[in-house]
């Protein structure tokens, strides 16, 4: 899988541009972090990639195919929301099953196969016994993992994570960081993680894209960004966070 974001711009209600000519290319199986201050357009960019927000200009190309006009469901990108957005009235197992349940009849696996897949995913997130629980009965970390399993259930081509750890305390955050990275490697899926925490970005991602006021200032590894910041903003932003 290779994804190319080409010259994407977006503004809401004719106001100032929230995304301003954003371009970036992702490699096979890469873990990319979008790092930037609040309001810099990270979530908007993720929503454009997910198909939840339509860009005003620019294209999205997936494996050589233009998917700009493809609707969210047909893209098969698994998304984990900042609020987790678990279905409140469904059990954990039903949440994870959702992506399989809504498949067209012809593509939908038989119930037994679906159940097996759900069990496999629940084991993967080490919540095998909690399938019958409802989201309200879970801890924050458990909810986060269910959201992850639900996104993985559709065998996504790309995983989109919007500040998935921001609602958790520091300790849980650190341990989940490791397990998310491990899950992503195990499944072999490319991922984009949105965060405003540079420690998190550098700890988890192969490359980090630094965003500011709707533009990507620089993309690179921690080394590249620190040794050769492309703009004063990147230099100051990384310095501020490190200090």
């Amino acid at each position: 899988m290779s994804l190319e974001i080409a010259n994407v711009s977006k503004s809401f209600d004719g106001a100032e541009a929230v995304l301003d000519d954003v371009s970036l290319a992702m490699h096979e199986g890469e873990f990319l972090a979008l790092l930037g201050p609040s309001g810099s357009g990270k979530t908007t960019l993720l929503n454009v990639v997910a198909g939840l927000t339509r860009p005003d200009r620019g294209r999205l190309v997936l494996d050589g195919e233009d998917i700009t006009d493809r609707h969210a469901g047909a893209r098969r990108f698994g998304m984990v929301f900042q609020s987790y957005a678990l279905f409140r009235h469904m059990s954990v197992a039903q949440n994870v099953d959702f992506g399989l349940r809504v498949l067209p009849r012809a593509e939908r696996p038989p119930k037994a196969e679906r159940d097996a897949r759900v069990r496999e995913l629940l084991d993967l997130i080490e919540m095998g016994d909690l399938g019958a629980r409802y989201p309200a009965q879970l801890s924050g970390g458990q909810r986060q993992r269910v959201a992850m399993a639900r996104a993985l259930a559709i065998s996504p081509k790309l995983l989109l994570l919007d500040e998935p750890f921001s609602a958790l305390d520091a300790q849980v955050r650190q341990s989940l960081r490791g397990s998310v990275r491990e899950l992503q490697r195990k499944v072999g899926v490319a991922a984009i993680l949105v965060t405003h925490d540079q420690t998190e970005a550098f700890a988890i991602a192969d490359r980090v894209a630094v965003m500011n006021t709707g533009r990507i200032e620089q993309i690179g590894t921690e080394r590249e960004l620190r040794d050769a910041p492309a703009s004063p903003f990147v230099r100051d932003f990384l310095k501020a966070g490190a200090g």
């Binding site: 198909g51 957005a85 678990l86 279905f87 639900r150 996104a151």
Partner: peptide, 15 residues
């Protein structure tokens, strides 16, 4: 009830 759950359902392929 918010839009998030609906958006999540959309990304999971629901019509």
């Amino acid at each position: 009830s918010g839009e998030d759950e609906e958006h999540a359902a959309l990304t999971l392929g629901a019509s």
